[in-house]
Design a protein around this nucleic acid. Sequence first.
RNA 1: UGGGGCGUGGCCAAGUGGCAAGGCAACGGACUUUGAAUCCGUGUAUCGCACGUUCGAAUCGUGCCGCCCCAGCCA
Length: 555
Amino acid sequence: MLATDFIRTAVVEDITSGRFDRRVHTRFPPEPNGYLHIGHAKALAISAGIARDFGGKFNLRFDDTNPVKEEEEYVDGIIADVRWLEHDFGDEIFYASDYFEQTYQWAEQLIEQGQAYVDDLSPDEIREHRGTLTSPGTDSPYRNRSVEENLDLFRRMRAGEFPRAARVLRAKIDMASPNINLRDPIMYRILHQTHHRQGDAWCIYPMYDWAHGLGDSIEGITHSLCDLGYRDHRPLYNWFLEQLGIYHPRQIEFARLFMTYTVLSKRKLLQLVQGGCVRGWDDPRMPTIAGMRRRGYSADSINDFCARIGISTANSVVDVALLEHAVRHDLNRHSPRAMAVLDPIKIVIDNYPEGKVEWMEIDNHPQHPEMGTHRIPFCREIFIERSDFMENPPRKYYRLAPEREVRLKSAYLVTYKGVVKDRDDNVVEIHCTYDPESRGGQAPDGRRVRGTIQWVSAMHAVNAELRLYDRLFSRENPENVEENETFLDSLNPSSLEVLTSCKVEPSLAETKPGDRYQFMRTGYFCTDPDTTEGHLVFNRTIALRDTWAKIQKKQ
RNA sequence: UGGGGCGUGGCCAAGUGGCAAGGCAACGGACUUUGAAUCCGUGUAUCGCACGUUCGAAUCGUGCCGCCCCAGCCA
């Protein structure tokens, strides 16, 4: 396997040196206190991807050591997301909470080795004793209790003899360490909180730093990959494992993902949900896996994006346009084409027989004939996009206009004859004639017709609700706000536009939630779960690239 | 004024002493029954800055500048 990034380079080193018996075993350790987002997709792609590339194993392990913040709902959501992203985590799901007894026993071992002690200081006192970034901390007066007293106290902590926050178990390392994580970090705290899996079996819970490496060790993880935030914790990760004398994985850190026009912190995402700024964790505007899935992003496109952004240790902000590119790239290849008119205006084809219906055949994908074809009905009255007609067209406009001929995709060539207007001078109906010899859209005499537009038979059209999404935030960096503002002030007021009277081709009546299409000349759409019989709802996953819009801007 | 990281074209990112990959974006053009897709083309990058080592430095050394992270009984 090629070492394409610095982590894979390290893994290759370890394999060639035989460090872990040539094994590769990674893990993804989410805390079930929120839904996964695109940043997690990156972490997942790295850890699961490395296991896959090197023929190793990959574990999904919930870091559920803090019952105060964790919920079952999140566990289920996370499992569904990881599965949807198609990462193979085997048949088993791991939980840090399953190791609580072993973790506890190891804590007693550390106490017996004189490397951990029970501290009676209050939270405030502990903070004061910790010192500051520039000054060393001071030892707790309880730091030198005897092994016997520590053991007794710790067992009574477990037995529930003390109230919440009364005491903690701390590692005895170095209160003067320049690395604050080494200033006698807390290993256990008293919570008296029901755990989503352990129930009331425990009233003391291990801290992340203490529990994490142990879980890695128990599972035989070789490479424990995490974000840069844990760089300073590595000496502690190593210290615990060394003192215990147990199997010792290697921790390697990489930079978290940041993306333009996006916020990626569980706290802020929670705020959006609870504040009603979006309709839930799976709102299609959310950068969550659930949101992107509902919106219509494919797992492949998300994984492809993760591969494209690379891995490094430099904090960087990826342009959301790269994600959009990955989405379009994958959707273009796999989405069947269909016709939809978002803002309909009627065309009457004067020389087309009334009541006549012809079923036109249309490719499901212009570049992939193996995807087949389907049929759409054509008749005298059809709908086209209001923007595909202009009475006074600008230069280079080659859609329908006075004196112009245009092609109705896969149907006929039609020529403008006139319009019907209302009292306010709005065009309400366009009259055309068609060339009966142009069935399929080909001119019999070979004349060139530049414009091709989509259409839907008025008689057969199905009504649909289309939800058009734009970026959730209008500022490239939502956090870059004025003095008294928050990231919520960066919210884009028009991130959602609902169109309720769109006309789509009748074949779409059978669509099921999750189905993806390209509505020709418009964008990629995905059937929303809100769809019911008789009421179609589509989410616009992403619009097509629009060169015409650019030309217009320049004009 | 503590410790740990990071600085390569607009945005990512290769490169680890021999004369700066690639992707995205942007901009041209070709083709086109989606103004989509596809194809072709376009960048004088002071490699944060300054000294230094070397025949030769983005790569090594020193100093400086800038940005990020760490003082939860969160993970």
